[in-house]
Each structure stands twice: as C-alpha cells, then as structure tokens.
C-alpha cells in the first residue's frame, strides 16, 4: 500500500517544486485580514469541492460502482440554494433544502443500482444528463447572483484556513473514523469484491450500496454549495462541469481500484490535491491556454504509468534476475 502512494506523493512534490522554481514566492504565506493568504491556500480552497466529491466517489467505487451524476447534483444544490436566497429566503434554510433534495437524488441513484440492479454507470448517467436540465429549470437558464454573507462563508469564508477545506477535511476524518475504526470499511470492501457472497455471508449488501450513493450525493451537494458560494452565484451550466471526471481521476490516482473491493482515503486526498495543484500550476507558470489540456494529459498519463502494476512487476522480475540463485 505504501508503495502505491509513493508515486502520487512524488508527483505532487514535483509539481510543487516546479512552481517554486518558476515562482520563488510560491510557498510564501501571510496573514491577510485575519486569514492565511497564499498559493497553497488557494490550492486547498479550490481543491475542496473536488476532494469532497472524490471522497463520496471513493466509497461508491469501493463497492464496484461509479457515480457520474455528482457534477449535476452539485449544480442542482447551488441552483436550489441561490434561487431560494434570491427569492428572499434564509441562507441556512436554502442550504438545508438543497441537501434534502440532493439526498433524495442519492436515494434515486441507490435505488436504481441496489434494488433494480441497473449497472451503476448507466443508472447514474441518467441523472448526469437530466440533472443539469433540472438545475437549468430551477434557475430558468439564468446565472442567479445572491448577496448573502452567511452563504458566502461556505465557499469563500475563512477561519484562518478556508472553511471549504475545513469541511472537506472534517468529512475525510469522519469517513476514515467510521469506515476504518469500525467494520464498515471491511463490509464495503467485501460488497465490492463479491456482492452475492457477502450477502450470503450475512452482510446487508443492498443497504450498504444504497447508503454509499446517498453519501456520494450529499458530498456532491455540499461541494456544489462551495462552488456556487465561492462566486456568490449559481451557474447551472458550468458549476461542477466535468467534476465527476476529476473526482474519478483523483480516486484512481490515489490507487483505489475501479474494480472495487479496495480503497485508500489518503490516496484520494493526494489525488484531489494533485489535480488542483495541476490547475494552479498551469495558471502560475503561464502555460498558454492552447496547450493547457495537453500539459495536464501528460502529467496524468505519467502518474498513471508510474503507478501501473505491470511496471512494478517488470522491475520485480529484473530484481529477481539480479539476485544470484
């Protein structure tokens, strides 16, 4: 397991070093109006939604599932909250409404997958497509701008550190505690390895699968609140666009198997940080917009190749050959 996390850590360090070389002040932090200010803080704050969604995604993937609808759910959460606040409502009620609605959407995904037995990629594709339509319906295709100090705090606020990353890290800690300090993690992994066998062994596979989809939707909802709160506006079209891909990438870079049955929360944290650092790097070192995607692709491919077990195996074989028999 340690070996698996080695390459993501190296990739993250390499990106950070690249930034420092180009911009020597990259690591500098200072206090600004009572909160920390610097590039590293930006990475944490902008990476918070991806991390949160990736956490939900990690558990879903551990059960051998996948949730493509998280980006759309995030957009719906932002749309509901901003529309509610814009019509004169209270920010807390608005956020509560969004969480409840997204919880229901999670129930829907879980129902399709665990009860009806539809393949997760198809089941969640339904909401991925339809969800943006729902979000656009709620905002009537407009960008809804709100002016609510309470709502602003979620994505743009600070308690020394950005509130967004504190929320994400709290959820990370909670998930680690609940799944790694109890048998729940083991049960989730067993469902991922073989749902039927684990059910026959007395594990309530259906309930577990259902629960992880609801959890993923709730994570997406909070992430959606962060995204729209960051700019105090709900943009049904662009909020959380392609974030499901970033989240899946974060999970994969972190060494969680897409075939289910094994997951690494630390890996997911690293993966999410790598993705955000990559984006910030592009802006900081001034890579031309035309080649941004190629640059990102090269880094991602490099990280994935370095992690590939085939390479480790080849090295192992060579190592054995080197040892005199």
């Amino acid at each position: 397991m340690k070996n698996r996390l080695l390459w993501p850590v190296l990739a993250l360090v390499a990106l950070l070093v690249l930034n420092v070389v180009v911009t020597p002040s990259f690591f500098s932090l200072r206090l600004q109006d009572g909160h920390l200010y610097g590039s590293l803080i930006d990475i944490l704050r902008n990476g918070a939604p991806t991390l949160l969604i990736a956490l939900g995604m990690t558990l879903v993937i551990a059960t051998r599932g996948i949730d493509l609808s998280v980006g759309a759910v995030a957009a719906i959460a932002g749309a509901v909250t901003c529309t509610y606040i814009a019509s004169g409502g209270d920010a807390w009620t608005g956020m509560g409404l969004a969480l409840v609605l997204c919880g229901v959407l999670g129930l829907w995904n879980g129902f399709l997958v665990s009860v009806l037995g539809i393949q997760p990629i198809i089941a969640t594709l339904v909401l991925m497509t339809a969800g943006r339509g729902i979000a656009m319906l709620i905002t009537e295709g407009q960008i809804v701008t709100v002016d609510s100090p309470t709502f602003r705090e979620v994505g743009a606020g600070f308690v020394v550190l950005p509130i967004a990353i504190l929320i994400s890290l709290a959820v990370l800690g909670l998930v680690a505690l609940v799944t790694r300090r109890t048998a729940l993690g083991l049960l989730i992994e067993s469902v991922g390895v073989n749902p039927s066998a684990s059910r026959l062994a007395g594990v309530r596979a259906r309930t577990i699968i259902w629960t992880v989809y609801v959890f993923a939707a709730l994570c997406a909802a909070v992430a959606g609140l962060m995204i729209s709160s960051n700019v105090s506006a709900a943009d049904a079209n662009n909020a959380g666009l392609w974030i499901e891909m970033d989240a899946i990438l974060a999970v994969v870079i972190g060494g969680t198997s897409l075939a289910g049955g094994r997951y690494s929360l630390t890996g997911t944290l690293l993966g999410a940080l790598i993705i955000q650092t990559l984006t910030t790097t592009v802006y900081t070192i001034g890579i031309a917009p035309e080649i941004t995607l190629v640059f990102k692709a090269v880094v991602v491919i490099a990280v994935c190749l370095m992690q590939a077990p085939v390479r480790i195996r080849v090295r192992g074989v060579r190592g054995k050959q080197g040892v005199p028999a």
């Binding site: 180009v22 590039s39 930006d42 960008i143 700019v231 802006y283 001034g286």
Partner: peptide, 23 residues
C-alpha cells in the same frame, strides 16, 4: 504581462486571478 483563459465564467475568472495575484 500574463494572459490565461477563464472560460467566460465567474469561477474561472476568480481562480485565474487568484493565481495571477501571486505569480
């Protein structure tokens, strides 16, 4: 001195500007 795409969106503009302010 620096130019980057913000994809015509608010969050894009914010994120790019944050990076510019530091670099």
């Amino acid at each position: 001195v620096a130019t980057q795409t913000g994809d015509f969106t608010r969050s894009g503009g914010k994120q790019v500007m944050e990076a510019f302010l530091k670099s």
